[in-house]
Write a protein that binds this DNA or RNA. Structure first.
Lengths: 154, 154
DNA sequence: CTTGACCCTGCCACCGTGGGAACCCTGAGG
DNA sequence: CCTCAGGGTTCCCACGGTGGCAGGGTCAAG
């Protein structure tokens, strides 16, 4: 029966670890759109096709998709994920490499958190002093209008 | 002397509240590129031009640019800034409108901060358990590889 | 007249995601 | 057989903001 590596009959592809892109999307939590995108940018290797040119996904592919999904959920950028995938697939990787990537990403996250917290602090202060009624006086607008140096958080 | 409203001689434009885009950029902290962009999307009204088609900025324009810059620094998205600018220019605005926009923005910031903090917490935990040496064992990759439900922070 | 520092417009890129058009394929029901 | 729904396929466009570059015009100083 046509369980060949390269091209498949559609009917052979049902069940036992073979599924079309829609099912792979449901199982992995990655949208159909994104699965194709990941393949296009080489994050996911090209999958087998049926004779009708349908993509066919095996268990391993879905596993990889879940890996990517999880990494995205943790905020890793694509470039990091590319490296993490390579390390994952390389059984003899040094865990230090992985840790370094994760550490770098964490640093970036922390920096952005600090930035946003500083924004929130300023906004809290401004809205606290704004009565927020029908009158036009508004310290928020006053702050935005200057005259502090531009680009600084006051 | 040619201090007309619509078109200006270049030489007339120097000094006294009139400057070209480069100077406006330096004074406002907004890049030349972005100044043009803000004008293109209607955030900044079209400015006067010299006969040679150079943009000419007045004090008020630079003031507006600083307003935008400050709002960007506080993380407001363009759409919010558009509204804030309108309110700023409307002397009889109710401060409640401003407060509402700021509050909505703050909520978004806080939500994103929480998301990122949750990412950091997970990553801290994972990297803490990863020895980060030459050996391949790595809880970070193990986590990414599942088998938890995709799309959740564990 | 030349040079260097500006300015102008317009197009492309990033990242990650979604939307949609135009088309092909499959399976089920009349 | 034909039709119809519900997939799949490719390709292009959009977003928010920002930067870069190409190919031109202009201005002041030497």
């Amino acid at each position: 029966m046509g369980k060949a590596d390269v091209f498949l009959e559609h009917a052979d592809a049902i069940g036992r670890g073979l599924r079309d892109i829609g099912r792979a999307a449901k199982e992995s939590g990655v949208s159909v759109k994104m699965i194709r995108h990941y393949e296009a940018i080489g994050l996911l290797k090209k999958v087998t096709r049926t004779y009708a040119n349908y993509r066919v996904y095996r268990d391993g592919d879905v596993h990889t998709l879940r890996f990517i999904k999880r990494a995205r959920t943790l905020g890793f950028p694509m470039e990091d994920i590319r490296e993490l995938l390579a390390l994952w697939q390389n059984k003899s990787r040094p865990s230090a490499s992985v840790k370094k990537i994760a550490g770098g990403h964490m640093q970036g996250l922390k920096r952005r958190i600090l930035e946003m917290q500083s924004m929130v602090a300023t906004l809290e202060h401004l809205t606290h002093n704004c009565h927020g009624d029908g009158r036009p006086d508004c310290p928020i607008l006053d702050d935005l209008a200057g005259p502090g140096k531009p680009g600084t958080l006051r």
